[in-house]
């Protein structure tokens, strides 16, 4: 039986992890490869690096980080943030990413989804969607949540799937940062509408939240940052909690 996935996400800026991750057993707390390995040891099913810098120079730094990570990480690595062309995606994959997430560029030039899927295979093309409640539906935002679009999140997810996306990384902007739990309604709506896997993101404040989103929606994975980074819980604790409640985990 396919296991539900737990995915820690690390924000990386100029080669360093930004949100201060606290592990007592690690010396260099800001080093992404070291943190990724620690999460693998804890039982993380996958790791996401989100590059939150914008300059071309820092993008090169990111590729070095990915390279160093891939040589010691033996679970899948997804890299996202600012990737705008097929060539940049190729560079990220060659550096050692297993999947690349596309966000703003996918909205601006949807054909890039198809091109990347054709060249590299659908399984490594993740479309990241930032969505915010707007009346009865959810509106898609780009540019790190700063710019509203005309797109409806559920329709856009379906369209991304048609174009060849292999997975949707769905972040609720309403829930993000609140620690009040994932946006169940949004996650359900998207995961019911598509047949590719959906990763729920935004709002995780405790283990109950992870259980809630994985048991009440068809999301296949839950992404979380702070509950793991600040040592509130290990990934292993999250797995044990889910297993006891009947959620299939590795």
């Amino acid at each position: 039986m396919l296991a539900k996935r737990i995915i820690p996400c690390l924000d990386v800026k100029e080669g360093k992890v930004v949100k201060g991750v606290k592990f007592l057993n690690l010396q260099d707390v800001g080093d992404p490869p070291a943190l990724a390995s620690e999460y693998e040891r804890q039982g993380a099913d996958e790791i996401v690096f989100l590059d939150i810098t914008a300059s071309a120079e820092s993008r090169k730094t990111m590729l070095h980080v990915v390279e160093r990570t891939a040589e010691r990480l033996f679970v899948p690595l997804t890299v996202g943030g600012g990737i705008r062309t097929r060539e940049e995606m190729r560079n990220a994959l060659n550096a050692g990413a297993d999947k690349v997430s596309l966000n703003t560029v996918a909205v601006q030039q949807p054909h890039i989804i198809s091109e990347c899927a054709e060249d590299f295979g659908s399984q490594c093309v993740v479309v990241a969607i930032d969505a915010k409640r707007d009346g009865d539906s959810w509106r898609v935002y780009t540019h790190g949540g700063r710019k509203a679009t005309d797109l409806d999140a559920v329709k856009w997810a379906t369209r991304a799937q048609e174009l060849g996306a292999g997975e949707i990384l769905l972040t609720s902007m309403d829930a993000d940062g609140t620690k009040d739990g994932y946006d169940i309604e949004l996650t359900s709506s998207v995961a019911d509408a598509v047949t590719i896997p959906v990763i729920a993101s935004g709002g995780c404040g405790n283990l109950e939240h992870i259980y809630e989103v994985l048991s009440r929606t068809k999301a296949e994975a839950a992404l979380a940052a702070s509950i793991f980074h600040y040592g509130q819980h290990t990934v292993q604790e999250a797995k044990d909690y889910l297993r006891q409640r009947g959620v299939p985990v590795r």
Partner: peptide
């Protein structure tokens, strides 16, 4: 029902 088959099995 869901393709790709993605994750740990």
């Amino acid at each position: 029902e869901r393709v790709p088959h993605m994750g740990w099995n």
